[in-house]
Every structure is written in C-alpha cells, then in structure tokens.
Amino acid sequence: MATEKQKPDTEEVKIDLFEDDDEFEEFEIDQDWDEKKEGEEISSQWEDDWDDDDVKDDFSQHLRKELESNPAKNEAKFT
C-alpha cells in the first residue's frame, strides 16, 4: 500500500535554542546484546605504565641538549 510519501521536506532550521552536543543516540527499543562480550576489546585500550624512565625520545634528547648548553648561548636564543 505504500508509495513514497513526502518526508518532512527540510530539516528544521537549527536554532541555538537549547543544546546538548553529546546527546546519546537512542538504542532500538527491542535492541539487546550480550552485555558481557561487547566491550571486552575496547576496555583493554588503556595504558597505566607509560610513565617510564625512558629518555631516548626526541623530546628528551632535545631537553638534554638544552640543559647541557651553556647559559649565554641559551640567552642569545631567546632575546
């Protein structure tokens, strides 16, 4: 019985009325899922032992150079 019916022709003009940019999308009313399994992979995506003693990265190397440089030279760079 269905023919293509006109949809509301335009999205309503968005007025900055009340807003919550992060409004959670509705789940389907009858949507259900295995709550145990779903998030397993994603919840392993965190690191808590990142605060290591490694100073081989570029930033640390530059920092080292900077600390070892003599003050006069350093002064010259910033004035």
Binding site: E25, W33, E35, E38, G39, I42, S43
Partner: peptide, 22 residues
C-alpha cells in the same frame, strides 16, 4: 563511564565515541 563503555553495543559507534569523549 567505564561501565557504559564496556556494556555499550559495539554497533553504536557514535555512542561509544561520546562515552570516550568524557
């Protein structure tokens, strides 16, 4: 938020993203 993240349907990526934003 961790509860929301681990229990959210993986099909709803937009919602996962919103959870992670916080």
């Amino acid at each position: 938020l961790s509860y929301a993240l681990t229990h959210c349907s993986t099909k709803k990526e937009a919602n996962i993203r919103m959870i992670l934003k916080y």
